[in-house]
């Protein structure tokens, strides 16, 4: 269980100062959405191949070690396999290769689709994890706040800021909570708590000595943080200025143009082949 907690990589920033790191966080979020859309638009193997080349190029550009990405793929591997298997049997068309029990038939069309879907999911995970590896959680939330600021025309400006602040705080406290959970687990284990053995009901009951102290300390922490923020005169988003401002540069323009090229390629391959 302790092992598992340590393997959570969400929001893990890997600073290498690459071209992608230097892009504006807003650019990265918008381009990510754009890329995801086009990954879904890719219809055939030729456009999927182009996507693969594109993703590989971007990953290389980020200078983030390959093992970090592999780790992400590994955690999600069961889902990939499951989806691929489903598509293997539901995929229509093509010649029938062999029939398993009942009516489960494996066709060439099914294999085609299974591999295609698996490839697409892998690419989706790779390109999405790139965002968290190359952008600090703070930058991401700042960018979200900035991107959603158009909501102010509906009178929702304060809400957007509060939402972004909540996200920042939540991300910031993930490692703290993981550490705290490990500490409490160890303390209760030292008092003979059994977290691994027993029936399901026993296991659920065994969580009580961990969850209650965790809940209490989270509430305590929240109060302390609120007090500390108020001591620094924090009173919401209105009129607040930033120390670090997001700025678009020529790098962002270059990235956007490069993306247009990629998207154009997908459309052409989709239509031509």
């Amino acid at each position: 269980m302790t092992r598992m907690l340590k393997d959570i990589t969400f929001g893990q920033y890997y600073g290498s100062g690459s071209f992608i790191h230097r892009l504006d966080a807003r650019t990265k979020i918008l381009l990510l959405i754009f890329n995801i859309v086009f990954l879904f638009l890719a219809k055939n193997y030729y456009s999927l191949a182009l996507c693969t080349v594109y993703v590989a190029f971007v990953l290389l550009l980020s200078k983030v070690p390959a093992r970090m990405f592999l780790k992400n793929i590994k955690t999600i591997l069961p889902i990939i396999v499951f989806t691929a298997l489903l598509n293997l049997f539901y995929g229509g068309g093509g010649t029938v290769l062999f029939t398993l029990f009942w009516n489960l038939t494996v066709t060439t069309g099914g294999i085609y689709r299974a591999v295609f879907i698996a490839g697409r999911i892998v690419l989706l995970i790779l390109i999405s994890s790139l965002l968290t590896y190359t952008t600090t959680p703070n930058d991401i939330t700042d960018a979200i706040e900035s991107l959603l600021s158009f909501l102010r025309i509906f009178g929702l400006r304060g809400a957007v800021h509060v939402l972004a602040m909540m996200m920042t705080i939540a991300l910031r406290f993930i490692p703290t909570l993981v550490e705290e959970t490990e500490k409490i687990m160890n303390a209760q284990k030292a008092r003979g708590a059994d977290l691994e053995n027993g029936k399901l009901f026993d296991k659920i009951k065994a969580l009580i000595p961990i969850l209650i102290p965790l809940l209490i300390s989270s509430v305590r922490r929240a109060y302390e943080l609120a007090e500390a923020m108020e001591c620094r005169c924090y009173n919401g988003g209105v009129g607040r200025v930033r120390m670090k401002r997001l700025r678009f540069s020529s790098l962002d323009l270059a990235a956007a143009l490069f993306n247009l090229l990629f998207c154009g390629g997908i459309i052409i391959l989709n239509i031509l082949l």
Binding site: K183, I184, A190, R191, G192, I212, P213, I216, S217
Partner: peptide, 20 residues
Amino acid sequence: IKDVRFKVGLVFQYPEYQLF
């Protein structure tokens, strides 16, 4: 190993946070 934990009692730092 559980029996060992009864024979060797360990009190962590700030143990008051483990009360439940």
